[in-house]
């Protein structure tokens, strides 16, 4: 499969972690043999959200914060498509926070890769919901004092289907997790640590290397309580699969139209006969 765009002008700073995410994502879809024609990349707005422009596939680059609602319905009306969301921490956890909560509850079979650089890159360095305490920016001049958003703990609390974290400095782990997330049936969240070399001088590649560790086999990702404590760990942050909720039905599987019939909604036709009788039923005919 060819996912290469050819010669294009990529708008990221040289050395940005987004390049690593893009490459790992390409490898993941390639190793999983996903036809670009059946793949839709969905994003909001931000540096991370430009990813769909750099990988040859269908794409829906919507509004800031609003990647999840269209992604959910793209999958729902045509479940044969693979839907992958690639967006930033501000996009998914800030502007789109409400959708984040409700997409987890809805559980569409889509994969959300969040490029978490703990900063707003595109708008030049303001705090994001995941910025750490004390992070100084041109707006947060005294440093961030709001409690940082913990996407993994929120996801586990909502009994999310698949919750993982990786850091792009660890390419092998990232590839492995992306592939598992894409293959997972149901909503899969991959919070991906990535350095913004221009606007986050604190959380650098070296910082991620020093402040993360890979979870070993002793963690049972199907145990929600231990998943919750894993999700709450910091300094160092755990990387790996935090939580997988046991066999949940996806949003599409819960939809009545797919209970006994796989035909995508987009191919369903107007039931003219039923409409005729629906109209007929409004006639209020005399009983007996």
């Amino acid at each position: 499969m060819n996912y290469e765009m050819g010669k294009i002008d990529i708008a990221w700073c040289p050395g940005c972690g987004n390049f690593g995410i893009l490459n790992v994502l390409k490898r993941a879809v390639s190793e999983l043999n996903i036809d670009p024609h059946n793949l839709v990349l969905v994003s909001g707005i931000g540096q991370a959200a430009k990813t769909p422009h750099y990988l040859r596939a269908n794409f829906f680059n919507g509004l800031h914060g609003r990647a999840l609602p269209p992604a959910t319905l793209i999958k729902a009306v045509n479940p044969g498509l693979h839907v992958i969301i690639t967006s930033g921490d501000g996009d998914m956890y800030g502007e789109g926070g409400n959708h984040f909560i409700h997409a987890i509850r809805r559980n569409p079979d889509v994969t959300a890769i969040v490029h978490n650089n703990m900063v707003y890159g595109l708008t030049k360095g303001q705090a994001s919901p995941t910025s750490q305490l004390g992070f100084v920016t041109p707006i947060q001049v005294d440093g961030v004092f709001e409690e940082p958003f913990n996407p993994l703990a929120v996801a586990v609390s909502l009994n999310a289907s698949f919750v993982a974290r990786t850091s792009i400095h660890n390419l092998d782990l990232s590839l492995n997790i992306f592939k598992q997330a894409i293959q997972h049936k149901g909503f899969a969240l991959v919070d991906t640590f990535t350095p913004c070399i221009s606007f986050n001088k604190i959380n650098t590649r070296k910082w991620y290397e020093e402040n993360t560790y890979v979870i070993d086999g002793s963690h049972d990702p199907t145990n929600r309580n231990s998943a919750f404590s894993k999700a709450c760990e910091s300094y160092p942050w755990p990387l790996g699969i935090i939580y997988k909720s046991p066999a949940k039905l996806s949003f599409e599987e819960n939809l009545y139209i797919y209970k006994n019939n796989n035909k995508p909604a987009i191919n369903r036709e107007v039931q003219w006969d039923k409409l005729k009788s629906l109209i007929e039923n409004k006639k209020i005919l005399s009983p007996g």
Binding site: A71, I74, I266
Partner: peptide, 24 residues
Amino acid sequence: FELIVEQAEDEIAAINMAIGAWYA
């Protein structure tokens, strides 16, 4: 009528969902 009927979390989601549905 084999419809998908979904109560969205807010109107912002509702319209973005509908636009996604048309796209697909």
